[in-house]
Design a protein around this nucleic acid. Structure first.
Ligand code: ZN
Length: 301
DNA sequence: ACTGTTTGACCGCCC
DNA sequence: CGGGCGGTCAAACAG
C-alpha cells in the first residue's frame, strides 16, 4: 500500500489517469461542477450576506446598503468578475415541487450554536524574516474556516461537492474526512436556515478524533503531535462513537436483504453503505439536539 | 504557501 | 441504446 497517489480519495481511475494524461495535452478541459441551481449573486466579493430574518438579537449594527468597511477591504473587485469558473450549468434540474413528495421538512429547532472556541493556535511558523516580492503571491487560498457552520462532530471534513438530489428541497453537501487514509464521508442536507435536517455518514474513521486544541502551553518537549492511534481492526464492524447507544438497529429499509445490489453481504463494513446518523462526537453542547433521526440507510453507488 | 470552500463538468450505474 | 440520477474530481478562488 505504498501508493502515493492512491491515498486520499484519489481512487478514481477515470480522473486519476485521465486527468494525468489529458492534463498535459488537454489542459483546457475544465470539468468540475455540481448541479447547484443556486443563484449567482454578482455582488461585491466582500459582502457579508448574513441577512437572516432570524435571531433579532446579535445584530449590533446593520447598515442598510453597505458599510464603508467594504470599500476598505475590498481588493478592487474585478471589472468583469468573469473568472474561468463562470460557465453554464450542466443541466438545470427543476425541482419537482408538489409532485408527490410531501416532505414536511419543517423541523423547527434552534440551530446548534457551537461555542467551542477552537481557534487560537500558535503556529511555530512565523520565521519570516525574508520577504519575497509582492508578486510572489500566486494563488492564496483559504476559506478561513472560522465558523463555517460545519457540524463539529470532532472530525475535520472537507467539502468536495454539493448537489441537489431529487426529492429534496435543499442541496446535499458532501464532505470527506481529511485524513491520510480515512475513507469516511459525510453527506449533509441543510435547510435554508442552515439547520441540518439530515446527515448521512459513510464509512468509519480509523483514526482517533483530533484533539480540540487545548491551551496546554506546558513546557518541555515540543513534539506534541504524538497521536496514539488506537489499533483498529479492518474487519471490525464497529461504529465509531462508543458513547452512543440507543440506536440499536432501526433499519428503515433494507430489512429483507433478498436482492439489491450484487454481492450484498448481510452485514459488513461495506465502504459503499451510507449510514444515517445524527450528531455525535461528544463535544457538542448537550441539549442542542438537532433532532436528526438515526437509522441505517442502504445506498449504493 | 496553507487549508478548505466554491462550482461546473464528467462519470458510472440504474431504469 | 439512451437519459436521468447521484456521486465525485479537480481547477480556481478566498482570507
Ligand atoms: Zn476520519
Amino acid at each position: 500500500m505504498a501508493s502515493p497517489s492512491a491515498s486520499t480519495g484519489s481512487l478514481d481511475p477515470r480522473a486519476s489517469s485521465l486527468s494525468s494524461l489529458l492534463a498535459s495535452a488537454l489542459e483546457d478541459d475544465p470539468r468540475r461542477g455540481s448541479g447547484v441551481p443556486k443563484f449567482k449573486s454578482i455582488a461585491p466579493p466582500s459582502l457579508p450576506l448574513s441577512a437572516l430574518p432570524l435571531s433579532p438579537s446579535a445584530f449590533p449594527t446593520m447598515p442598510p446598503g453597505l458599510s464603508p468597511a467594504d470599500f476598505l477591504d475590498s481588493k478592487v473587485s474585478p471589472p468583469l468578475s468573469l473568472s474561468p469558473r463562470s460557465k453554464s450549468p450542466d443541466s438545470y434540474q427543476q425541482i419537482p415541487k408538489g409532485e408527490d413528495a410531501n416532505y414536511s421538512t419543517f423541523t423547527f429547532q434552534t440551530n446548534a450554536k457551537q461555542q467551542s472556541a477552537v481557534k487560537s493556535e500558535l503556529n511555530p511558523f512565523q520565521t519570516n524574516a525574508n520577504n519575497r516580492s509582492d508578486y510572489d503571491n500566486f494563488q492564496s487560498q483559504a476559506q478561513s474556516m472560522r465558523e463555517q457552520r460545519k457540524s463539529d462532530d470532532g472530525y475535520n471534513w472537507r467539502k468536495y461537492g454539493q448537489k441537489q438530489v431529487k426529492g429534496s428541497e435543499n442541496p446535499w453537501h458532501y464532505y470527506k474526512c481529511t485524513h491520510p487514509e480515512c475513507p469516511t464521508k459525510k453527506k449533509v442536507e441543510r435547510s435554508l436556515d442552515g439547520q441540518i435536517t439530515e446527515i448521512v455518514y459513510k464509512g468509519t474513521h480509523n483514526h482517533a478524533k483530533p484533539l480540540a486544541i487545548r491551551r496546554s502551553l506546558a513546557s518541555s518537549a515540543s513534539s506534541v503531535p504524538s497521536l496514539a492511534v488506537p489499533v483498529y481492526n479492518p474487519a471490525a464492524p464497529k461504529i465509531n462513537d462508543p458513547a452512543f447507544s440507543a440506536h440499536g438497529s432501526s433499519q428503515v429499509d433494507s430489512a429483507t436483504p433478498e436482492n439489491s445490489s450484487p454481492s450484498v453481504i448481510g452485514n459488513e463494513p461495506d465502504p459503499k453503505r451510507w449510514k444515517q446518523e445524527g450528531e455525535n462526537g461528544g463535544i457538542l453542547a448537550p441539549g442542542s439536539r438537532t433532532g436528526t433521526s438515526y437509522s441505517y440507510l442502504d445506498m449504493h453507488t
